[in-house]
Design a binder for these strands. Structure first.
Lengths: 251, 251
DNA sequence: CCTTGCGATGAATCCATAT
DNA sequence: GATATGGATTCATCGCAAG
């Protein structure tokens, strides 16, 4: 158990640039939500630099900023994600876990990347989104997925934990900061895979929900975010969470 | 709409032998649960163990028969499943759907096989199993998955349907006939992807739960099962279901 | 303060039309 | 002929205002 106070920080940088600068085995867990590179009807539309146009419909289209790095084809996606996750593995302690969000379409490619990077695939956590569109003459796409890997055998714990394999949580609506912002209750369950007092790394921080959940649970947080706009927002949110949570809380 | 009575039949044969004999475009939907080949950790373990040893713990071990075809490595699994699913595509009407069960470990390989066979991948349906073992220091494996594909663009319907993307149902325990028997309520939701009065093909019939659900929903059923023991059971169950459901019920 | 009702929305998708 | 664009579609859920 670390005797230092928990800390939290968001680097304003590209993941593939910043990750190699991290100290090996300096974090206990990786928890991240990469751009899925999944939407869009045509190659042109996928490659376009507006994630709002791809993912947000109706009148909400004008309110949120775009995010970067959502313009790869599927082959490049696997390759790029494998590079990122390999650097994450290097930065992570043996026995630590890696959790990566994915939609149904990219799930196989994400599992390839996770394993190509050297993580041992451990399972799939299902995130059910109550708010979703029906699909005519077919099955609703009402879930997203979190792929779980570990760096070698799972580390044992003083206090064993038993975590759920299916999480339910609505995407934030009012006051949403990011097109793909995750609900705090879902992130709160996921950060439990990190031992109390440990450090969580998120190379695609976005609006910083992972960091907020980490700090609230007494974990330290290291975020990386390339878009100015979101790096600022994430920093502010994480610092705010630090002020709420008394330093030293490792419950 | 067919004017003939619904019919149901289980062939006692190997899938790859029997499927090529089917008339092209003679079924409306494929719904099946292939042997997952994923229980053992090592090739030796996979090849040696009986299916009872792999999938059944405790006292149920004595009562259920082994089933065949569960000893392929992952590469062969994809290849073999692609062959089977390609034959299914040939037998299926354009616009028809294919639903294939998979566990988390085989999901990527199953999606490869589905697409290699020529089906258009449409999504993942999550099956939540309420009864499951917790996992120490990790996330429960409480879901299995159904991969959904279509033969080209989805066929339109007189009565559009909007189906759920997450199903909950407990595996049968008492009175279970097969090690991997599926709950009837889950199968009942899945058969709805087949137009009323249409025919459902299941090349790995097992104890015939798919057939029972199909008949109850007024669909015709064509099953294929290689193991004597299960082919008999499935035939009996499907015939029994036919007697319950009045012929001509296509509701 | 709790309940009711109305309106907006979703890491979309489909088809028809235009380029 | 291939690709791009526009507009319609669907409903459980959630926010918000009114009662």
């Amino acid at each position: 158990m670390p005797t230092t106070h928990p800390h939290a920080e968001v680097l304003h940088a590209d993941a593939l640039t910043a990750l190699p600068t991290l100290t090996p085995e300096s974090v206990d867990c990786v928890l991240t939500d990469p751009p899925y590179n999944s939407g869009g009807r045509t190659p042109t539309e996928r490659a376009r630099q507006s994630t709002r146009g791809k993912y947000v419909s109706g009148s909400a289209r004008h309110t949120l900023a775009d995010f970067a790095g959502d313009n790869r084809d599927q082959r490049s996606y696997s390759y790029w994600l494998a590079l990122v996750l390999a650097e994450c593995l290097r930065a992570c302690v043996p026995g630590g876990s890696c959790l990566v969000f994915s939609d149904w379409r990219q799930l196989p490619a994400t599992s390839d990347a996770l394993q190509a990077a050297g993580w041992t695939w451990r399972g799939i956590i299902v995130w059910r989104k109550p708010l979703n569109r029906p699909l005519r003459n077919g099955f609703r796409r009402e879930c997203e997925y979190v792929l779980w890997g570990s760096s070698g055998p799972l580390a044992d714990r003083d206090q064993p934990v038993y975590l759920p394999g299916l999480l339910t949580g609505s995407q934030p609506r009012a006051g949403r900061r990011h097109v793909t912002e995750k609900p705090v209750n879902v992130m709160a369950e996921l950060v439990e895979i990190c031992p109390p007092g440990g450090t969580i790394l998120d190379p695609f921080t976005g609006s910083g929900t992972t960091g907020v959940a980490a700090v609230h649970a007494g974990r330290s947080f290291l975020g990386i975010e390339v878009t100015d706009h979101y790096a600022e927002i994430a920093n502010a949110r994480v610092l705010h969470a630090m002020q709420q949570a008394p330093a030293g809380n490792t419950a």
